[in-house]
């Protein structure tokens, strides 16, 4: 399950994961929501793969992995994780409009609250890593790199999937971002 804020590149990430699933010979369903929520709202994309996938939707308590592009969104959707699931988290904070307007408060200790509920959390500053690669928009691919390392799927498959989805002119910087994510040293 990929959660984040509209404009962060969740859709592209879900398409890469879908392609990985297909290359692994799985049945795959990727469920996106287009339209209004894309304008800076909270967005969630479901990626399911396996023998036979029926429902395209992931429901509460079902996700093996939550790939979170923003920490408040990770906490918002945490109930969708299975008890033994894990979270790969970009430590970025993006204030929602009610916080910007001073009507609500961005909660303190978001990562602590996440860790209380899920022992298996990997936190990375993927945005900073992406910046160092030369394009902050590759943050999504840094996170994919981080995810790739912790799966049994061959690295080569991930690289092929990236080539399936990302346009030629942006490939180089994204492959670099993937490598950085793949080799990211977690604290």
């Amino acid at each position: 399950m990929i959660v984040g804020v509209g404009g962060q590149g969740t859709l592209l990430a879900s398409r890469v994961l879908g392609s990985v699933g297909m290359r692994e010979g799985c049945d795959v369903k990727v469920s996106e929501i287009h339209g209004m929520s894309q304008r800076g709202g909270s967005v969630v994309t479901y990626v399911k793969m396996g023998g036979k996938v029926h429902s395209p939707v992931i429901e509460e308590g079902e996700a093996h992995i939550v790939l979170a592009f923003e920490k408040l969104e990770a906490l918002r959707w945490i109930r969708y994780l299975r008890p033994d699931g894990r979270i790969i988290l970009n430590s970025q904070r993006i204030d929602p409009l009610p916080v910007i307007l001073g009507e609500s408060r961005y909660p303190d200790g978001v990562i602590r609250e996440i860790k209380k509920r899920c022992p298996n959390v990997q936190v990375a500053d993927a945005l900073e890593t992406a910046r160092k690669c030369g394009n902050p928009k590759t943050m999504n691919v840094v996170l994919i790199g981080l995810l790739a390392r912790s799966t049994r799927i061959k690295k080569e498959t991930w690289l092929k999937a990236l080539r399936d989805v990302i346009p030629e002119r942006l490939l180089e910087v994204n492959l670099k971002a993937f490598e950085e994510g793949y080799n990211y040293s977690l604290v």
Partner: peptide, 17 residues
């Protein structure tokens, strides 16, 4: 289905802008 605890406080909503 047993679910994990909800987040303690009401999280700020993130409407489209």
């Amino acid at each position: 289905k047993e679910l994990m605890d909800p987040p303690l406080e009401q999280l700020p909503v993130r409407p489209p802008v």
